[in-house]
């Protein structure tokens, strides 16, 4: 392994480290489940873009999409899985490590 690959940033989960996907994971992590429309509005993206990134996260097993009905109206709920929660927790830990890391002394 190259010495530069020891840097914290190499430990960042590339799947999460994309603006929209980071926002999705951040919004889902503190809740049991979140409504699709609420998530779309909270992170200010279009339906199609949100769906696209949700598909990636769902394929990775990070997010679960739950479709149901309230009365006759269809409703889509989104929930973070245990795998997703662990991955997000690790991701946040790496971010904090980067922020807290002291700059290397200059020679």
């Amino acid at each position: 392994m190259n010495s530069s690959e020891n840097h914290f940033r190499h430990k960042l989960d590339e799947l999460i480290h994309v603006p929209v996907r980071l926002s999705i994971m951040a919004a889902l992590a503190p809740a049991e489940r979140v409504d699709f429309q609420f998530l779309r509005d909270a992170i200010e993206v279009s339906d199609s873009l949100l769906s696209k990134h949700l598909s990636v996260l769902e394929a990775a097993g990070y997010v679960e999409v739950i479709k149901g009905y309230v009365g006759k109206r269809p409703r889509t709920w989104l929930a973070i899985t245990e795998t997703g929660r662990t991955a997000f927790k690790d991701y946040v830990e790496v971010l904090r490590s980067i922020v807290e890391a002291k700059p290397a002394p200059q020679e």
């Binding site: 480290h17 926002s23 992590a29 503190p30 809740a31 979140v34 909270a42 946040v92 971010l95 922020v99």
Partner: peptide, 15 residues
Amino acid sequence: VQGALTEIKRLEREV
């Protein structure tokens, strides 16, 4: 990194 942490904090609070 700082922007990511800020976004996480913002969404966590809102949710």
